[in-house]
Simulated assay, not measured.
Amino acid sequence: MNLTTSAFLLMMIVPCTALLLSTASVRVCMDKDCRLDGSDEALEIISKLAPSSCKVTTCGCLGPCGGGPNVQVQDPDGKRIKDGRPGKSNYYLFKDINSADEAAGMLSFVTNTKVSPSKSSIDKVTSTRGPFDLDRTTKIALQRLLYVVTALFLKSSQEAGTFDVVGGEVVENSYFAGAAGVFVASQFMGTGSKDNSIKKPTNEK
């Protein structure tokens, strides 16, 4: 085998080897709702179980909130991978990764290798969501409902000729002021998803 042939084969082998070694990029949501659902521990589990060539990172809200911990997985080309496992959503999101078994199943599916859950010291994540900790999706729905109810009240009072009537007397612009107050108050319902305290995975490169 001459030098030219050897160089050509090397040029072909190196990219192919790199492709075989490359694998999925796992992104764990670390926003408020998923953290209430235990994404901090889910991150530790996934970081512990992920193959050494698998990149584990954190990210912001993936939606749908309240079904977490949510995880998104991308292939080496950056394309999102569907959760095509039997009985799962077949959606571009791995939902409710709340145990070592779930994490191992997800990683086995996306890397096409057998991943054992026994490597993790955490068996199941701990949810800190209380009975009044509504998820962001529910809060947004309630916020929109509040807007609709307010608009219907304004419309019905206008049709009934009672617009701006307070205590039997007309108070100019009182209803518009009330509607504005409702809108301002609704901005404090916790519909934002950002949480500045984001942990980094132990094996992030």
Rank of each mutant, 00 (worst) to 15 (best):
residue 104 A to C: 02
residue 70 N to Y: 06
residue 129 R to Y: 07
residue 64 P to I: 07
residue 137 T to D: 10
residue 121 S to P: 00
residue 102 E to V: 13
residue 121 S to D: 15
residue 56 V to R: 03
residue 145 L to D: 11
residue 93 L to E: 04
residue 126 T to V: 15
residue 87 G to N: 14
residue 104 A to H: 05
residue 71 V to N: 07
residue 70 N to W: 01
residue 74 Q to K: 13
residue 134 L to V: 01
residue 141 A to L: 11
residue 91 Y to I: 01
residue 75 D to I: 04
residue 114 K to A: 15
residue 63 G to Y: 07
residue 122 I to K: 08
residue 106 M to L: 15
residue 75 D to E: 09
residue 59 C to S: 11
residue 129 R to Q: 12
residue 95 K to R: 15
residue 58 T to C: 08
residue 147 Y to R: 09
residue 71 V to E: 06
residue 53 S to C: 11
residue 105 G to L: 02
residue 130 G to E: 07
residue 89 S to R: 08
residue 96 D to M: 10
residue 62 L to T: 00
residue 73 V to L: 13
residue 105 G to Q: 05
residue 112 N to C: 05
residue 105 G to R: 03
residue 148 V to N: 12
residue 58 T to L: 07
residue 141 A to T: 08
residue 98 N to C: 08
residue 102 E to H: 13
residue 84 G to Q: 09
residue 125 V to E: 07
residue 103 A to L: 09
residue 96 D to A: 14
residue 99 S to L: 10
residue 138 T to L: 04
residue 61 C to I: 01
residue 109 F to T: 02
residue 95 K to Q: 14
residue 74 Q to I: 02
residue 111 T to P: 01
residue 88 K to Y: 05
residue 120 S to T: 06
residue 103 A to K: 01
residue 98 N to M: 07
residue 81 I to C: 09
residue 96 D to P: 00
residue 52 S to F: 02
residue 138 T to Y: 08
residue 82 K to D: 08
residue 101 D to Y: 05
residue 84 G to K: 11
residue 121 S to A: 14
residue 123 D to P: 00
residue 88 K to F: 09
residue 110 V to F: 05
residue 135 D to H: 14
residue 82 K to R: 15
residue 55 K to Y: 07
residue 134 L to C: 05
residue 88 K to T: 03
residue 76 P to D: 12
residue 142 L to H: 05
residue 146 L to T: 12
residue 90 N to C: 04
residue 103 A to W: 03
residue 98 N to Q: 14
residue 128 T to N: 09
residue 72 Q to V: 14
residue 110 V to G: 06
residue 69 P to E: 08
residue 109 F to I: 01
residue 133 D to Q: 07
residue 139 K to E: 00
residue 86 P to E: 12
residue 68 G to S: 03
residue 60 G to E: 02
residue 136 R to V: 10
residue 139 K to G: 03
residue 125 V to C: 06
residue 99 S to E: 13
residue 89 S to T: 08
residue 61 C to A: 10
residue 139 K to L: 14
residue 137 T to Q: 15
residue 76 P to R: 11
residue 112 N to R: 12
residue 126 T to Q: 15
residue 145 L to M: 07
residue 73 V to R: 03
residue 54 C to A: 15
residue 116 S to Y: 00
residue 94 F to S: 02
residue 69 P to W: 06
residue 55 K to C: 12
residue 110 V to D: 03
residue 137 T to F: 08
residue 54 C to P: 00
residue 119 K to A: 15
residue 61 C to N: 06
residue 108 S to L: 07
residue 95 K to F: 05
residue 117 P to A: 04
residue 142 L to W: 01
residue 106 M to C: 13
residue 99 S to I: 07
residue 84 G to V: 04
residue 135 D to R: 04
residue 76 P to W: 12
residue 73 V to Q: 09
residue 80 R to A: 09
residue 79 K to E: 15
residue 73 V to D: 06
residue 128 T to V: 06
residue 132 F to V: 06
residue 131 P to T: 11
residue 72 Q to P: 01
residue 116 S to N: 03
residue 117 P to V: 01
residue 91 Y to E: 14
residue 130 G to T: 05
residue 66 G to W: 04
residue 76 P to N: 13
residue 131 P to A: 08
residue 58 T to Y: 09
residue 73 V to C: 14
residue 86 P to I: 06
residue 147 Y to C: 01
residue 103 A to P: 05
residue 99 S to P: 09
residue 105 G to T: 04
residue 82 K to M: 11
residue 52 S to R: 10
residue 111 T to I: 04
residue 61 C to D: 08
residue 84 G to P: 05
residue 132 F to G: 03
residue 88 K to L: 11
residue 70 N to H: 10
residue 81 I to E: 06
residue 121 S to T: 10
